[in-house]
Design a protein around this nucleic acid. Sequence first.
DNA 1: ATTATAACACAGTAAATTACTAGGGAATTA
DNA 2: TAATTCCCTAGTAATTTACTGTGTTATAAT
Lengths: 157, 157
Amino acid sequence: MRLSTKGRYAVTAMLDLALNGQDGPVTLADISENQGISLSYLEQLFAALRAKKLVRGVRGPGGGYFLGREADEISIANIICAVDEWVEFTRCQGKQDCRGGQRCLTHSLWDDLSRQIYDFLEEITLADLVERGRNSDAGCDKHKADHLVDEMTGKAA
Amino acid sequence: MRLSTKGRYAVTAMLDLALNGQDGPVTLADISENQGISLSYLEQLFAALRAKKLVRGVRGPGGGYFLGREADEISIANIICAVDEWVEFTRCQGKQDCRGGQRCLTHSLWDDLSRQIYDFLEEITLADLVERGRNSDAGCDKHKADHLVDEMTGKAA
DNA sequence: ATTATAACACAGTAAATTACTAGGGAATTA
DNA sequence: TAATTCCCTAGTAATTTACTGTGTTATAAT
């Protein structure tokens, strides 16, 4: 599993579609404006999403993008895998020697963990996130985010 | 949250420590050998792990590294955050305008998701993984199976 | 038909990150 | 004293990220 800012761009863009795609397609220009991502980079990301049928494009004036299927049928794992190109888990899988050594065990453990992370993200759909956003008054909870950052960086005791 | 091969290197290295650090310290040279990571790159990673007190170094002959605390007190999130340097979640946190617009909502949703992923990885400790490895006879079964398949299909001479 | 719109496509590129090499030092043990 | 191992810094090739630029094609409105 791989989770980077590129994956975040894809997820937020798809969220944008899920939120605004009810009445007509959403243009990449809109998403670019909303999310602060360059238009051409979005086109690159959407080429990958399109290839996995996660979005459907409509050309011409009044065109734009729709979700490729219902929001509750699109998992976060789907989105991230589409743009973040799956990386092989371990090195010893193919050629390498793996005669019951330490290396193989740690790699096997990593595979298990990686699988767990994937399963976790597979369970969360775009619809889940949208629904969650509706329930919490959310908006721009800056303090919550700050607190989270503090926790990560070990500043908060 | 950010999850890359760098994070994987750190986690597998820490697993190596957890598995082999029972009777004496483990040298980076050993880990380098076991995991197939360059020594100097490991030193770079361990500088970060050391800074977060996740490992403790012992110099001189017979030296090496110990876990900084018990394996059940070290979460996967701890490890990944140590080496993968936390990235800011959204762009609208500081300066940017955030007047309840679409942008802010999607970013807030991403924050929620990011939080969930963190909490998930915070719950899994090194000890959990080691324990899991002990229960499953694991080892190299997958590779044994692969080899079997290869034999069947005549790939292996 | 013409024109504007927007997806679609591809090439190039600056910046950042990854993973590594090189060359030392400092602490510790034999 | 010598070997070992952590520790530190600087440099760097390869890759990825994120973006710019320049188009072409499909469609809708005029």
